[in-house]
Amino acid sequence: MTKAVRVHEVGGPEVMRIEEVDLAPPGRGEVLVRNRAIGVNFIDTYFRSGAYAAPLLPFTPGNEAAGEVVELGKGVKDFKIGDRVAYQAALGAYAEARIVGADRLVKLPKSISYETAASMLLKGLTAQYLLRRTFKVKAGDTILVHAAAGGVGLILCQWAKALGAHVIGTVGGPEKAKLARKAGAKHVILYREEDFAARVKEITKGRLCDVVYDGVGKTTFPASLDCLRHFGLFVSFGAASGQIEAFNMGLLSAKGSLFATRPSLHTYSEKPKDLQKMARDLFKVVSSGAVAVSAHKTFPLSEVVAVHRALESRETTGATILIP
Rank of each mutant, 00 (worst) to 15 (best):
K107R: 15
L163D: 05
L252C: 01
K273Y: 12
K107L: 14
T220V: 06
G238Y: 00
F283N: 07
T60D: 02
R192A: 13
K277N: 06
F79H: 00
I189Q: 08
A198L: 12
T220F: 10
L23Q: 00
D141Y: 04
E30S: 06
Y94G: 06
S294C: 10
V85E: 15
R192S: 14
R192T: 13
I43E: 06
I323D: 00
E202M: 04
L56E: 14
A118C: 05
K138H: 11
R48V: 00
V106R: 03
L32G: 01
I143P: 09
L322T: 00
H187L: 06
V291M: 11
P272R: 00
I38M: 05
A86G: 14
F42I: 06
G39T: 08
C157Y: 07
L154H: 14
K277S: 11
R6I: 02
Q88C: 11
G250W: 11
E194D: 10
P26F: 06
S241N: 09
V15R: 06
C157P: 07
L108C: 09
G124R: 00
R132Y: 11
Y114M: 01
D83I: 02
V5E: 15
E14L: 04
A160T: 01
F135M: 06
I321V: 15
R36D: 08
S119D: 13
L154M: 07
M249P: 08
